[in-house]
Write a protein that binds this DNA or RNA. Structure first.
Length: 259
DNA sequence: ATGGTAGCGGTGCTA
């Protein structure tokens, strides 16, 4: 079973990119972030044509997440539990995979910039809330994949220039400490489990020719429960997509689990 | 030192 995550920065603009990638990469499950669409505007038919069912948690203008799957998506949760006052559409979870069931979440963690604004404590509290929810999910002892745009650079080797990112909300010490505590619940980073080398990036800024200079960062992650990690066969980042016409600033990240 | 890009929506916010 191939499971992927991709922040597409507007599904309206990127629909044909997503359809092309689905047709060629053939994932069983694709988690999308930054739809920037209300559920009423979600192009479900365009994915049904390719054999995918969809569960969506949309929002107009900002955020918005979805799960696409070749099999039925059940037991769907919309919104990250733990704060009824949080109305931003950044989390959807469901169980899919047919005879090889896996619980999958599509996550769009707050960016948090600038550090010092009220956006940063929102990011940290959101990550803490994700940790609390993940702890409950791990107790189920299921195959679990928490996939998405975490807006977290885990380590120095995950960015081109660590010094340039040191004071950024994606790499600040408190961010990395909170992410480390989350991962220490027993989650495996699917890309790092298969690839030790530096310079694996999933995002290149639109500005300053970042793609051409390879000024990238790795912020899109697939975090696996022990039951999923035991079945991990391969993982990767489809960076060629970043060179497509009018691309997202993120590229798909994927893993393969044995059925 | 500054600005550099993209999407949404029709101005400034978010990233």
């Amino acid at each position: 079973m191939k499971i992927a995550t991709w922040n597409i920065n507007s599904l309206k603009v990127r629909l044909e990119h997503v359809r092309s990638w689905l047709a060629s990469a053939q994932p069983d499950v694709l988690c999308l972030q930054e739809l920037k669409l209300a559920d009423e505007a979600f192009p479900g038919l365009a994915f049904a044509e390719l054999g995918y069912q969809c569960a969506t948690h949309g929002q107009k203008t900002y955020n918005g997440v979805a799960i696409l799957s070749k099999t039925a998506i059940e037991d769907v949760t919309r919104g990250l539990p733990g704060d009824p006052a949080d109305t931003q559409a950044r989390y959807i979870e469901g169980v899919t995979g047919g005879k090889s069931p896996v619980r999958v979440a599509s996550i769009y963690l707050p960016n948090g910039n600038p550090v010092g604004s009220d956006k940063y404590p929102y990011k940290l509290s959101w990550l803490k809330r994700l940790k609390a929810h993940a702890s409950r999910l791990l107790a189920l002892e299921e195959r679990l994949v928490l996939a998405g745009d975490y807006n977290v650079i885990p380590h120095d080797i995950d960015c081109w220039d660590p010094a340039a990112w040191r004071s950024d909300a994606l790499f600040a010490l408190d961010t990395r400490l909170a992410f480390t505590a989350f991962q220490a619940l027993g989650l495996t980073d699917a890309v790092r489990a298969c690839h030790a080398e530096p310079g694996l990036y999933s995002f290149w800024d639109y500005q300053a020719g970042a793609w051409q200079k390879n000024w990238g960062i790795r912020i899109d992650h697939l975090m696996l429960s022990p039951q999923a990690a035991d079945r991990l066969e391969a993982s990767g980042i489809d960076k060629t997509v970043r060179a497509w016409e009018q691309p997202s600033d993120h590229v798909p990240v994927w893993c393969v689990l044995a059925d």
